[in-house]
Amino acid sequence: MAGYFSIFLVLLTLTSGLIWLIDHLVYAPKRQARIALAQGANSAMLDDETIAQIAPQPAIAETAQSIFPMIAAITIFRSFFYEPFQIPSGSMMPTLLVGDFILVEKFAYGVKDPVWRTQLMDVSDPERGDAVVFKYPLDTNVDFIKRVIGLPGDTVVYRNKQLYIKPKCEAEQTETSGLNCNEFNKLETQLINQDEFFSEGVAEARLTENLANVSHDILINPARPEQKMAYYQQPGTRIDEWVVPQDSYFVMGDNRDNSKDGRFWGFVDKEKLVGKAVFIWMSFEFEQDPDSILPSWVPTGVRFERLGSIQ
């Protein structure tokens, strides 16, 4: 839907701009000529109402002239700078909750055209720990948000609900991004609580995970077994191991037992990246009572304490 809306904005901008330009270059001079002729035949100055009757501006041209600057500004801002997104699921809990509205920095990893998404300019590469929005590899009409776990060349293992990363290193390099080279690094975790989030009546453990130089919170459901038989099987690797290809990234949701991520469908190509999630600008609660007459999509409150930067 986001892709269709981008195309709609671009078409609306081009159409309104073209109508305004044609009117300005072709028809506006003719209207001015009629006004000048009428003014020459009258000794008194013509008022605005009379001018509008003599040389009226077509309604479509007037509308295009009024909306073009605003639509053009929105299109440029949304296409190249920041785009708002709404979090629809709990796959990134506890970092992002259902009802969070976020801003995605579109230029973080490069400048793309808003229609064909061709890379116009490189800016930087994603870093391990970034929360990224990307086109879902199995359906590019859908936008997903997950966290970057593995960079190109990394080997990632997720076993017994524990992450291990063997980073790609240059020759004679002993450490990169806080990880030791030529070995699997077990990512450290620390239990925060186990009474804040529940799934199917089971208390989920909230832990802080140290992902190289980035610390963020994750959720683990101790009662839910790993779905290894559904994992994406990369040729030449074990069932819970993945080697990240060049110009690709391995991503996972922070809600580890409730996220269909790279473990299940593979890798995200760099060209499918939309941007980096950087800020929560609004957060609504949708906790309706069972006997409430309000539709489920009507907010019941605002979580002001959640507004701010995304870790």
Rank of each mutant, 00 (worst) to 15 (best):
L307I: 15
L21C: 06
F8N: 01
F68S: 03
Y27V: 03
M93N: 14
I71T: 14
K161F: 11
G40N: 13
L179D: 04
D23P: 00
N180A: 11
P290N: 12
R117S: 06
F68C: 00
L294K: 08
I74C: 05
T75W: 06
R159N: 15
P114D: 01
A38G: 11
A171H: 14
V214W: 00
R206D: 05
V214E: 04
V278L: 03
D125P: 00
Q86P: 00
L191D: 10
P225S: 04
N221G: 11
I145M: 15
K135D: 11
P69D: 08
F5W: 13
T208W: 02
S215H: 00
K272W: 14
T50K: 06
I35S: 01
P222K: 06
A205F: 09
D257H: 11
L187E: 03
N160L: 10
A36V: 05
G129N: 05
R238A: 15
T300S: 06
Q57E: 07
P29F: 04
T155A: 07
D269E: 15
I165S: 07
T140G: 00
P94N: 15
L294H: 03
P225D: 12
T176P: 00
L207C: 02
L211R: 07
P114G: 02
I7T: 11
D139N: 14
R147T: 10
L11G: 15
Q227Y: 05
L219H: 05
N141M: 06
T50Q: 09
Y158W: 10
D217Q: 15
F198D: 09
K228S: 15
A59G: 00
C181M: 11
G17V: 04
T15H: 03
L138A: 13
W297K: 05
L9M: 15
S292R: 01
F286V: 04
V132A: 08
G308I: 11
V244Q: 05
K276W: 07
Q65K: 12
F80V: 02
I67V: 13
L307P: 01
A230I: 06
E170P: 00
M45W: 07
I102K: 02
E200S: 10
G275Q: 04
W281Q: 13
T155E: 14
I19K: 01
V156L: 01
D154N: 02
F85G: 11
L12G: 15
Q119F: 02
P69E: 05
Q311V: 09
A205Y: 13
G275L: 02
R256Q: 13
